[in-house]
């Protein structure tokens, strides 16, 4: 191919109507004809323009004798001596990576041809579900992104449809079908009102990948503290701490109790256990008690140390 192109260029450059032009054309043609046997030993390569990844194929090669064949691919290099006048067999493992390949055949000179290997059928999904925890009832808070790969982990650039199936712990599930664009499909959805696991499954053809997002309680709502006597101390105890949808805040969430009495201010950061936060504190005389969870403030009460 390279050789033919070169000759054509020489001929077009000499194209002119003059006598000298015609004479030069004839001389060049004669020269090419004389050198033809030398070039003829490097045979032309005619691979298919595109090949599916992992598909074996052959490249017919004309001529006789032996030559060195090179295949230069994204992750594979072949160098072998081949007999001309037959087919060059390309094994499936030699074209498993998508991308541009160079086939080069050399004896006294070299010819080359390139071909494209495209991804095979979808076989893997790299599926990202973000975030892994999300507060309930938050609009557009869950993002799902799926990258579609073939069995050799080439990105499948031909359009495919990814079906995102969302299955909450309670309530009906739903799905969204999203076409891929350059091998990527993504969707966004809102968290539901109830805490718990939500499973999101990305499906393309027979390939499935499941991920889980944990819906957690949102900020505390109507935080309420009450005081109960506990020996010489006063026990401060919240009602069950819930968000505005009625979901219990998880155990370990810190609730801050603050007491102001004649001796000064006292604070206790205590984690919720079994749904409520509780602490014991000594109070001198009349005291003012408040409660907060993060930036959310609850009620305030007045207590007496002799309670």
């Amino acid at each position: 191919m390279m050789r033919v192109t070169t000759m054509f260029l020489i001929m077009t450059r000499t194209r002119s109507g003059s006598f000298y032009g015609r004479a030069r054309l004839l001389a060049v043609a004669a020269l090419c004809f004389c050198f033809l046997p030398i070039f003829a030993s490097a045979a032309d390569l005619h691979p298919p323009a595109t090949v599916e990844a992992g598909q074996a194929f052959s490249i017919p090669v004309q001529g006789s004798g032996e030559a060195t064949f090179y295949l230069v691919g994204p992750d594979h290099i072949v160098k072998r001596t081949v007999k001309l006048g037959g087919d060059l067999e390309i094994q499936s493992g030699e074209v498993s990576s998508a991308g541009r390949y160079q086939a080069i055949l050399c004896d006294s000179s070299c010819t080359f041809a390139s071909f494209q290997v495209n991804a095979a059928q979808p076989a893997h999904l790299s599926f990202f579900l973000h975030p892994s925890r999300v507060p309930v009832s938050t609009p557009n808070s869950i993002d799902a992104t799926a990258f579609v790969f073939d069995r050799y982990f080439n990105l499948v650039l031909t359009p495919a449809v990814v079906d995102f199936r969302i299955t909450p712990a309670s309530g009906a599930g739903f799905s969204q079908r999203v076409p891929t664009h350059h091998g990527v499909a993504w969707m966004r959805t809102s968290s539901t009102a109830h805490e718990g696991r939500v499973q999101v499954t990305a499906v393309v053809g027979s390939v499935e990948e499941a991920r889980v997002v944990q819906q957690v309680a949102a900020e505390a709502c109507r935080l309420n503290v009450r005081a109960v006597p506990s020996g010489k101390m006063i026990a401060l105890e919240t009602d069950p701490v819930r968000d505005c949808s009625g979901n219990a805040l998880p155990d370990g969430t810190v609730v801050s109790f603050t007491t102001i009495d004649s001796a000064g201010k006292s604070t206790v950061d205590t984690p919720i256990k079994k749904g409520i936060a509780r602490t014991e504190i000594s109070v001198h005389g009349r005291a003012h008690v408040s409660v907060a969870c993060g930036v959310i403030e609850g009620n305030e009460i007045a207590v007496n140390g002799r309670l």
Partner: peptide, 12 residues
């Protein structure tokens, strides 16, 4: 760990 809980009393 959520423990220990440390109360800070009589602040002034």
């Amino acid at each position: 760990s959520a423990d220990p809980v440390i109360a800070i009393t009589d602040q002034a």
